Lab assay of single mutants.
Amino acid sequence: MSIQHFRVALIPFFAAFCLPVFAHPETLVKVKDAEDQLGARVGYIELDLNSGKILESFRPEERFPMMSTFKVLLCGAVLSRVDAGQEQLGRRIHYSQNDLVEYSPVTEKHLTDGMTVRELCSAAITMSDNTAANLLLTTIGGPKELTAFLHNMGDHVTRLDRWEPELNEAIPNDERDTTMPAAMATTLRKLLTGELLTLASRQQLIDWMEADKVAGPLLRSALPAGWFIADKSGAGERGSRGIIAALGPDGKPSRIVVIYTTGSQATMDERNRQIAEIGASLIKHW
């Protein structure tokens, strides 16, 4: 067993022997301040990774656009098919120029040779490549099948209805392509620590998230040296922004954090800054 596999296998073990965790309302004060600064709703939840206990939450059962955070769930569904012998990570998928959609920095470079399922998941999570996500959605049967996968996990809230990039439209009061912070946090925890996926697939999923290259201005910008984070960000229309993450000190994750916002007129930089400040408060009061 590799060191990384050992780390993920012992996530519940280490967490069980940690000192009790206590909620700190100071972080919620910052979440509410972010709402004021952005002029928009902000949803927040913080779960203990081992027990699933909610440590703090704000608007945990209000719907927010998922945006690209759905790509972690998508690759979880792909990995479940791999575990069941219905898919192979090494299978190569070929596609054409007509398949390319807006923001496809990886797939646009491989029109000639195609990409493997493993490479597509890596591109979808680490670079948020939209064509990679659409190609992977095709392998599982489309958005409705991802929703069905989530329902089978016990998540009857999260739903995907459309493809990239239309799913980022974020129309107010439109339930399409949305989740709730509580539902997303619980589902992410199941994917990373539950028995739904094999140990190898859980490790692969967290490795992809740990290698995320496009979430630097968010929670990662607030992390002290030595902290662990595996995350996936999302951005959408109407001032929408979000991030889902597993993080913790001492090089291992111990909490799940989900943050979503929508309806702001603020710039992307300002949305990023507010999420980073929430992260800084979380870490300060850990």
Score class of each variant (00 low, 15 high):
residue 43 G to R: 00
residue 40 A to G: 13
residue 78 V to W: 03
residue 240 S to Y: 03
residue 119 E to F: 02
residue 46 E to G: 05
residue 256 I to L: 12
residue 66 M to T: 06
residue 122 S to K: 13
residue 11 I to W: 12
residue 262 T to W: 08
residue 262 T to D: 09
residue 111 L to Y: 09
residue 234 G to V: 00
residue 237 E to P: 14
residue 15 A to Q: 08
residue 198 T to G: 12
residue 257 V to T: 06
residue 165 P to F: 05
residue 149 F to W: 14
residue 273 R to A: 10
residue 186 T to H: 13
residue 107 T to M: 05
residue 208 W to F: 07
residue 106 V to K: 07
residue 116 T to K: 06
residue 108 E to K: 12
residue 238 R to K: 13
residue 115 M to Y: 03
residue 124 A to L: 03
residue 249 P to Y: 05
residue 182 A to N: 09
residue 207 D to W: 12
residue 167 L to M: 12
residue 15 A to P: 07
residue 151 H to Y: 14
residue 32 K to V: 11
residue 72 V to E: 01
residue 277 E to P: 02
residue 181 P to D: 00
residue 122 S to W: 11
residue 121 C to W: 00
residue 137 L to Q: 05
residue 180 M to H: 14
residue 178 T to C: 07
residue 63 R to V: 07
residue 82 V to D: 05
residue 80 S to Q: 12
residue 184 M to A: 07
residue 46 E to R: 04
residue 151 H to T: 12
residue 95 Y to V: 08
residue 205 L to R: 00
residue 131 T to D: 01
residue 230 A to V: 06
residue 244 I to T: 06
residue 128 S to T: 01
residue 126 T to L: 08
residue 17 F to G: 09
residue 47 L to V: 13
residue 9 A to P: 15
residue 189 R to K: 14
residue 215 A to L: 02
residue 31 V to H: 01
residue 7 R to W: 08
residue 98 N to P: 09
residue 260 Y to F: 15
residue 130 N to I: 01
residue 139 T to E: 15
residue 29 V to L: 09
residue 73 L to K: 01
residue 80 S to R: 11
residue 267 T to S: 13
residue 203 Q to H: 15
residue 161 D to L: 03
residue 220 R to A: 04
residue 118 R to D: 12
residue 272 N to H: 04
residue 236 G to K: 01
residue 224 P to Q: 06
residue 155 D to A: 01
residue 103 Y to F: 09
residue 135 L to H: 04
residue 261 T to W: 04
residue 261 T to G: 03
residue 90 G to H: 12
residue 186 T to R: 14
residue 137 L to V: 08
residue 171 I to M: 15
residue 227 W to L: 01
residue 70 F to A: 10
residue 44 Y to W: 03
residue 160 L to K: 02
residue 77 A to M: 11
residue 189 R to G: 12
residue 120 L to F: 04
residue 160 L to A: 11
residue 228 F to N: 06
residue 23 A to T: 04
residue 93 I to S: 03
residue 262 T to E: 09
residue 71 K to H: 00
residue 95 Y to A: 03
residue 5 H to W: 05
residue 246 A to S: 09
residue 114 G to P: 03
residue 228 F to C: 07
residue 273 R to I: 10
residue 146 L to T: 04
